[in-house]
Design a protein around this nucleic acid. Sequence first.
DNA 1: ATATCATATACCCATATAGGTATATGTAAA
DNA 2: TTTACATATACCTATATGGGTATATGATAT
Lengths: 116, 116
Amino acid sequence: MPMARASTTNDVFNAIGEPKRRAILEQLVVQQMTVGELVDAMEWPQPTVSKHLKVLREVNLVAETRVGRFHYYRVKPDELRPVQEWIHQFEKYWGGALEQLDSYLIDIQNNGEKSD
Amino acid sequence: MPMARASTTNDVFNAIGEPKRRAILEQLVVQQMTVGELVDAMEWPQPTVSKHLKVLREVNLVAETRVGRFHYYRVKPDELRPVQEWIHQFEKYWGGALEQLDSYLIDIQNNGEKSD
DNA sequence: ATATCATATACCCATATAGGTATATGTAAA
DNA sequence: TTTACATATACCTATATGGGTATATGATAT
């Protein structure tokens, strides 16, 4: 009995892995919108929008405010900080794969062959 | 005939949506490693490591250098830039959801009706 | 050559999940 | 009330994919 894949959408990293969800966030960061306005902007079926909003809600990337029958959604940008911070640990290597190239050259000197 | 879900892993955003793949990148950014060294560090089965490395390779987040039977993997940090740049458009709103709250208050003052 | 090591890949399975349709829920208007 | 509207959700289907096992590939050593 194979142990199956783990759930994914329940964290911010995976939530923004979905292109449609990124598009929704890009819309909402400009201005808060109702679901219907999002449907018009995206030109996707309403359940599609609602379901992606649900995922975004569950990871706290959007917040909802109900006004009558309208549900206003807005981005909670702070929630993207963990992603930015995770990226940050790689930034110091940007533009220079040089240290790694160095150790690679040492490796092939110590071992012989190469490729790539 | 339901149109099924779209492929996801073939872009950087989704590649880093997988926790194991993030862990691999965190290891490799410290130092390049062979698959076997990664297996030892992660304590996952070797095929698991190899398959995640394949995904990371396909989105160009890691590069491979073969030295004899050893395959050295290293991070290509620059490839994370698109993610960082995408995040960047949200940074100006960090710490203050205030403007959005303002416009929300204005909206409900204007009786919450949506314009169409 | 043969054996061993390092890695990739093929295969299977279970499940998570995106997309679609229909319906439920909840609110406001007539 | 009844109707219309706004959104969420239940349901279904197809597929993408993570995890596991076994095997293939490829390189080195003996």
